Amino acid sequence: MRFASLGSGSRGNATVVQAGNSCVLMDCGFTIKETERRLSLLGLTPKDLDAIVVTHEHSDHLKGVPAFARRYELPTYMTPGTFRARDLGKLPDLQLIENYQAFTVGDLHIEPVAVPHDAREPAQFIFCYGEMRLGVLTDLGNVSAHVEKCYQNCDALLLEANHDSMMLAMGPYPMSLKDRVGGPWGHLNNQQALRFVQSLDLDRLKQLVIAHISEKNNALSKVQEVFQGVSEQLEDILYASQDEGFDWVSMSAETSPTAELTAVLAQSK
Score class of each variant (00 low, 15 high):
residue 125 F to V: 01
residue 125 F to Q: 01
residue 125 F to G: 02
residue 127 F to Y: 03
residue 129 Y to L: 03
residue 130 G to S: 11
residue 131 E to A: 10
residue 131 E to K: 13
residue 132 M to I: 08
residue 133 R to D: 02
residue 134 L to D: 01
residue 134 L to I: 11
residue 135 G to T: 05
residue 136 V to G: 04
residue 136 V to H: 15
residue 136 V to F: 14
residue 137 L to C: 04
residue 137 L to Y: 00
residue 138 T to Q: 05
residue 139 D to T: 09
residue 139 D to A: 13
residue 139 D to L: 01
residue 140 L to S: 02
residue 140 L to V: 07
residue 142 N to R: 13
residue 143 V to M: 05
residue 144 S to Q: 04
residue 146 H to N: 10
residue 146 H to F: 11
residue 147 V to N: 01
residue 148 E to Q: 12
residue 148 E to H: 09
residue 148 E to N: 15
residue 149 K to L: 13
residue 150 C to K: 10
residue 150 C to W: 00
residue 150 C to Q: 09
residue 150 C to E: 08
residue 151 Y to A: 00
residue 152 Q to V: 10
residue 152 Q to A: 13
residue 152 Q to P: 09
residue 152 Q to T: 10
residue 152 Q to R: 13
residue 153 N to I: 00
residue 154 C to K: 06
residue 154 C to G: 05
residue 154 C to P: 07
residue 154 C to H: 07
residue 154 C to E: 10
residue 155 D to R: 00
residue 155 D to Y: 05
residue 155 D to N: 09
residue 155 D to F: 03
residue 156 A to G: 08
residue 156 A to F: 09
residue 156 A to N: 06
residue 156 A to L: 06
residue 157 L to G: 04
residue 158 L to F: 15
residue 159 L to H: 01
residue 159 L to I: 05
residue 159 L to P: 04
residue 160 E to Y: 07
residue 160 E to V: 02
residue 161 A to P: 06
residue 162 N to F: 03
residue 162 N to D: 05
residue 163 H to V: 01
residue 163 H to N: 04
residue 163 H to I: 01
residue 163 H to Q: 03
residue 164 D to F: 06
residue 165 S to V: 05
residue 165 S to C: 07
residue 166 M to Y: 08
residue 166 M to S: 12
residue 166 M to C: 08
residue 167 M to E: 03
residue 167 M to N: 02
residue 168 L to R: 01
residue 169 A to Q: 10
residue 169 A to T: 12
residue 170 M to G: 10
residue 171 G to F: 01
residue 173 Y to M: 11
residue 175 M to L: 15
residue 175 M to D: 15
residue 175 M to S: 15
residue 175 M to Q: 15
residue 176 S to H: 07
residue 176 S to C: 09
residue 176 S to N: 08
residue 177 L to W: 08
residue 179 D to S: 14
residue 179 D to Q: 15
residue 180 R to Y: 11
residue 180 R to I: 06
residue 180 R to D: 09
residue 181 V to H: 02
residue 183 G to L: 09
residue 183 G to H: 06
residue 185 W to I: 12
residue 185 W to K: 14
residue 185 W to E: 13
residue 186 G to H: 14
residue 187 H to M: 13
residue 187 H to I: 02
residue 188 L to K: 03
residue 188 L to D: 07
residue 189 N to M: 00
residue 190 N to M: 12
residue 191 Q to G: 09
residue 192 Q to K: 06
residue 192 Q to D: 10
residue 193 A to I: 07
residue 193 A to H: 07
residue 194 L to V: 14
residue 194 L to G: 15
residue 194 L to S: 14
residue 194 L to W: 12
residue 195 R to D: 13
residue 195 R to M: 11
residue 196 F to M: 12
residue 196 F to G: 10
residue 198 Q to H: 13
